[in-house]
Design a protein around this nucleic acid. Structure first.
Lengths: 152, 152
DNA sequence: TTTAATGCAAAAGATTTGCAACATG
DNA sequence: CATGTTGCAAATCTTTTGCATTAAA
């Protein structure tokens, strides 16, 4: 656990309120799954969350973990790293560039900027390892998706 | 095709040279797979590349496409979007932040920077759609992976 | 001719779904 | 009590692997 206890409690309160407001049932499983995600900054995957939740809820199942995580995302309480449900995409552009990514459909395009090529990183980054490249990722909704109604 | 013909030819030449230098066989399939990736800027996935290559090499198989794409990556001729072989990771940090990502193991950590929170994007980005967030993604090799020998 | 690469089919890994039993509001 | 949620098992989807055949060098 690397988040302050108080912050975790605040997040849980927020979750509780959102559920009440939307008429979503507050089950033991949901509470524990959310707690485990809120407690860490290590960006776990579903399997890791499943293993952590199991300690307090031994009967929980992996599919409930998945269902709950997507619910939490739809509620705006957690985000995913990268675009979910996306397959591996390949890039033959070897010149320095940045990306625009549509968070609905995964549409991705390159753009260029001399300014963005020379960003100053805070020193705190060095503690994590050796930096090789820095890229700006712009997230948004592409032209085509803007036209459509949203279906999760 | 949205890359200049000449650039595609240059990239193919480069590929040819790298293969010769490393004693890697230049098969018809490899050439066509690389050509299809080099021709576009739309960041296709393996299935899309497979369908495009099929038009000129009808007997090609999807697993050869995968094997070739990983070969090209190992040769430094293509990159992947996101960390390959990674499962979906979840993030409960709702405050504005940026990421350090280890390209070997997927280790991911947040960092903060007021400067990076207010980047100026080039106008060209607007053509792609509506921007919702901008995030800096720092790629590198984490402390733990730096210690190990590299095994693809 | 030697060795690596291909295509096929089957396997593996991640995530999703149908459905009967169960718990929440 | 009504309805939404769970756990299980089976299904689906993407990517990988073993192996006999084929093609580069």
């Amino acid at each position: 656990m690397d988040i302050l206890k108080q912050d975790v409690e605040d997040r849980l309160d927020h979750f509780t309120n959102v559920c009440k407001a939307k008429g979503i049932k507050l089950t033991h499983q949901r509470l524990e799954i959310f707690r485990k995600v809120a407690e860490t900054t290590d960006h776990p995957d579903a399997e890791q969350i499943f293993q952590r939740v199991r300690k307090s809820v031994p009967t929980v199942s992996l599919d409930t973990v998945y269902r709950t995580l997507w619910l939490l995302r739809d509620l705006g309480l957690v985000a995913t790293l990268g675009v979910p449900h996306e397959r591996t995409r390949f890039d033959a552009n070897l010149t320095k560039h940045h990306h625009f990514v549509c968070t609905r459909c995964g549409f991705t395009r390159d753009f260029y900027s001399d300014d963005l090529n020379k960003l100053n990183l805070p020193e705190s980054v060095d503690q994590f390892g050796i930096v090789t490249t820095t890229q700006v990722e712009v997230r948004g909704i592409c032209r085509e998706c803007s036209g459509k109604a949203y279906t999760s």
